[in-house]
Design a protein around this nucleic acid. Sequence first.
RNA 1: GCCGCGGUGGUGGAAUUGGCAGACACGCAGCUCUCAAAAAGCUGUCUUCUUUUCGAAGGUGUGGGUUCGACUCCCACCCGCGGCACCA
Length: 865
Amino acid sequence: MARNNFENIERKWQARWEKEGWYPAEDFAKGKKKFYALVEFPYPSGSGLHIGHAFSMTGADVYARKKRMEGYNVLFPMGWDSFGLPTENYAIKTGIHPAKVTARNTAIFRRQMKRLAFSFDWRREIDTADPDYYHWTQWIFLQLFKHGLAHKEKMPINWCPSCKTGLANEEVIDGHCERCGTPVERRELDQWVVSITRYADRLLAGLETTDFVAKVKAAQINWIGKSMGAKIKFQIANLGDSLEVFTTRPDTLWGATFMVIAPEHPLVGEIRSKAKLPAAKIQEIEAYVNQARRKSELERTELEKEKTGVFSGLYALNPATGKQIPIWISDFVLASYGTGAIMAVPAHDERDHAFAKKYSLPIVPVIQPKQKWDFDKAAYTDVEHGRMVNSGPLNGLAPNVAIKKAIAWLEKKGIGKKAVSYHLRDWIFSRQHYWGEPIPMVYCRHCAQKGITWWETPEGKKFLQKNSGQPGIWNLEPGTSRRGLAGWFPIAEDKLPLKLPDVERYQPTDNGESPLAAVKSWTEAKCPVCGRPARRETDTMPNWAGSDWYFLAYLLAGKLGKPHDKNIFAENKDILRYWLPVDVYIGGDEHNTLHLLYSRFIYQFLGDIGAVPKEHPEPYHRRVSHGVILAPDGRRMSKSRGNVVIPDRVADKYGVDALRTYLMFMGPFTATMAWNENALRGVERFLQRFEKFVMGQAGGKKKLLENKEMKAALNELIKKVGGDIDNFAFNTAIAAMMKFLNLAIEKNWRLGRAELEALVKLLAPFAPYLSEELWHRRLGEEKSVHWAPWPKADAKYLGTQKRMIAVQVNGKLRATLELTAEEAKDQEKVVALAKKDPRVAKYLATGQLKKTIFVPGKIANFVVK
RNA sequence: GCCGCGGUGGUGGAAUUGGCAGACACGCAGCUCUCAAAAAGCUGUCUUCUUUUCGAAGGUGUGGGUUCGACUCCCACCCGCGGCACCA
């Protein structure tokens, strides 16, 4: 297409696609197989569509378009992940309501996406900040609460002392506040917490049924971080209490010479009251604990940091040796992992070893390594080699065998049991921001004091009757505190959505509460149980809340705002049954852990409570993660560096088809690649030659002499392009088309109508405008090329191309023979021809032929000695 | 430290189950067209050697190995990228 021409063509076809309603996906389309192609929906930022969006969405679009042409009923939807901090910050700065900003931005995104010809089903567009949408985000939260998976807890959060606000982990960059650069402190705030850890095993097991790439599976497995071991109880000598630890190495119990508890461990609080310690000692402990609390997460996890600690004054009894061992307090032990306490075995654990050296604690080896080992210098951590010593019943065993034996021994003695621990933490669900979904809960102080939980109210009892009879289908673990549950009541489901109120100021309040806390009309509520004045929750939900079920929202789009029964998430479950699971989910690496895990969790949970059908245990069948486009200088694009490539500007200059085709040609879909405008011009040239070639073909009426060579090449091309698109190998698909075109021009091939159609169709997913133009202008078709059937390779012509057979002598290439496909398979013929070739004969004459290797159609190799 | 991915011309990158390394494109050089330039087209382009041709030798991070044959498989190592990281 001539450069000045593409604009008209783009305008023309876009108008027609718009008129025809783009690419609707019908529920239950008859006689077609469904295909659900999903690409991550964007946060509609003020800067418009980024080249990274254009890249991943073009890849997804090419794939979806090909599937559609193959006759699938393709669902390829798009929407907006609208809640988020940038919009809120913009509102703080300008005073413009975030909803207004969002509407403005999504209009820009929508226009840009339509221009780039992404074949979305726009009827199913969703927006997480739309009350009809967050109605159900809130509903899901209520189900989590009612089923005992959400509660309020004091949790350490990241606190910026300068901005006076809590920060999400994503807002903390290297331990500093993203906005002002102040070092972040840890602070405890009451937070809603969702018990995702109770799904840890299910989330792990579910992975096996999915077709995620190894990298993604590994990331999820790592994040869940399951480790097997044992919990062991230690009696505390001068207190009638016991201390439980988690360990993966119960075999080394006999070598435990001290214990360490986290500064946040409950036992620390009891030291002052229960242990009879001198005042000076108590002061020392308190000083250490306070100092640890003030330390930022950064300082606490500093790699090279020397370990610090303080002796608690308490002693525990090692249940295996019966010896008294000191209990220390140190911040290298994390309160949030295991039991917040460890048994320290300095001879066989590096961290314990470092601590023992610093505070001169005894190091007692219980594994005899094969080689000489200086236990004063280093811990011996190998579990494969060595023999247990000084360990009673375990003596003589290899450590990995001793682990199992030790657990059995502990269970028999009643001092410990097999246990599992996870790296995965519960999900902190509260944010102290305005621009998010309000958490639909009310707190009644009066009821809280009386210890009334929602399950004890008439409504709650009715809920329990309907369900399993206990608070929580997945019951609270025995002993779990009810703190954080008493006095908290959900608002009635038929009152949803609980809409965000308009506020005057969007910034957080001085004490770190959400801006909603400053709105009296918001906070003042009536207790649904006792009718006394109560306080509405002022926190909002994290960004993940809206995005973790959006793939379901597309299926219900249009119905979200008006279900007949406002309490039922999906009234017509057959729609979900039909479309799920998502067949291919395309997104960025940055969402391979959190987003993917959260949404898998929510989906499993919704299945468990019967809100979505249970046929498919996992929401996503295949996950493809796309690569990243760097600036021409090879660095990440950023506004401050001024190296940002804007898709709209590229499209202005070269046209959408050239942009799309170049994006797909740059390299593998998963790769990190630098933008190169010159290479784009190469693609532009290809499209121009393609147009010229197709327009210049006689085509149509006149009967052509059959050109077997051309047909063979074209059918190979059809097979290659189709297969490559299926494998997301767009770059080689385009390369193959370029090669065919070069050959066709060079050999001056004339294509018949059928061949010409096929060629245009192959290009259609990549260059939708040009192909549509040629389809109508050159081939005179009425209907769109994008609904035309995908060409099928004719088996008759496959494998009929001339072959180059490589002839080797002792594995070294000496000659090549050009043969027909038939000849190339004929061993006798090839060997005879090869032997005759002077370049080969020369080497055969130098020795004796020992062996001849022949691979049909590929190679002949003579072994000569 | 652990987990995952990768290392191929001047550049981005190709290479079914081990079977012609460098497809396709960029860049560069020369040429055609032109008063000239742009655009377009043609030719060449892994390195070295041979005046050229014919050809020969080397070559996919390094060192070994398996094989008739290795970018591909195995062992050891080096480097880069991404994620996690005091996880008991």
